[in-house]
């Protein structure tokens, strides 16, 4: 067959091309989120049920002493608010990964993956987009919580932002890592049970760890090893203008590890694609 001239367009990509790509992915994720109003409502209802019903019911059962970062006695609902913020991000991270499995089954994922920009960057943009969506949900929750008299210092709303970005990235990349290993949408329910619930309950979201230690030292160590605990504590401290350095280190390291794992899993020569034919065909 005949031949043509080599088209040697410039190599690499400019910064503005990278920025355009990021903006486009975040924009699309935002549009999808706005189109799924029920997702937004359920993302808010879930923590509010915990706040309005569970926390009020437990208020008398579980007294909270003065523990850092709190400087005074606090109500139980004040204690669990950061845990619920992290829970929103946990669900959002898993939801994003669910949508990646869905996208992959439906074929939309291919649109993303055939972009000429480096794949690690595309996945990173996807993570940032998911985190941005989780921030919308968390701040909507904080607004309602404020009406419920859960009012951290005003500066806390700002200082918590970097903590939320980091924890959002960690939970998003965990979700992405999990999504790469799921072959079908139906398998996802099991993962929700095996990941979300154990992570949430074996953490400091609902009860301070010193109380857990009194009940079961083993569970205490398990909670300590749970990255979600550190996401909760990072958010809790940041919301009151403090930094929990240990949590910051754990969340930062886990973010990097999960992200590398997810990027590795989506590498065409190793992970995802190798295991399955496209759409079950050849």
């Amino acid at each position: 067959m005949s031949s043509t001239t080599i088209d040697s367009r410039r190599r690499g990509f400019s910064l503005s091309e990278y920025a355009t790509c990021l903006t486009g992915i975040v924009w699309r994720e935002g549009l999808r989120f706005l189109h799924q109003r029920e997702r937004f409502v359920s993302a808010l209802v879930r923590p509010l049920v915990w706040l309005f019903i569970f926390a009020v019911g437990f208020r008398q059962v579980l007294g909270i002493y003065i523990i850092p970062p709190y400087e005074t006695y606090i109500l139980y609902e004040v204690y669990i608010a950061p845990g619920l913020m992290a829970m929103i991000q946990l669900f959002n991270g898993m939801q994003s990964s669910l949508s990646m499995v869905y996208d992959r089954e439906m074929g939309n994922m291919r649109t993303l993956l055939v972009s000429p920009l480096p794949r690690w960057y595309l996945l990173f943009c996807k993570l940032l987009a998911g985190t941005a969506v989780s921030l919308l949900q968390v701040y909507a929750f904080l607004l309602i919580a404020w009406l419920w008299d859960i009012a951290p210092p005003p500066i806390g709303y700002l200082t918590v932002l970097p903590a939320l970005v980091l924890s959002g990235l960690m939970l998003g990349s965990l979700g992405m890592l999990i999504s790469s290993g799921i072959k079908q949408l139906e398998n996802f329910a099991g993962v929700m049970n095996f990941v979300i619930f154990p992570m949430f309950f074996a953490s400091s979201a609902l009860y301070p760890l010193w109380r857990v230690q009194e009940g079961s030292p083993m569970l205490y160590y398990l909670c300590q090893a749970n990255p979600f605990t550190h996401a909760v504590e990072l958010i809790r401290f940041a919301l009151y203008g403090h930094v929990n350095w240990i949590s910051l280190a754990v969340v930062g390291s886990c973010t990097i590890a999960f992200m590398i794992g997810a990027i590795y899993a989506y590498d065409p020569s190793r992970g995802l694609a190798r295991r399955m034919p496209p759409g079950g065909e050849t």
């Binding site: 400019s14 790509c21 992915i25 924009w27 699309r28 649109t111 972009s115 920009l117 595309l122």
Partner: peptide, 9 residues
Amino acid sequence: YHAALHGIA
């Protein structure tokens, strides 16, 4: 969206 994935402004 597709254009953004190719870095087209």
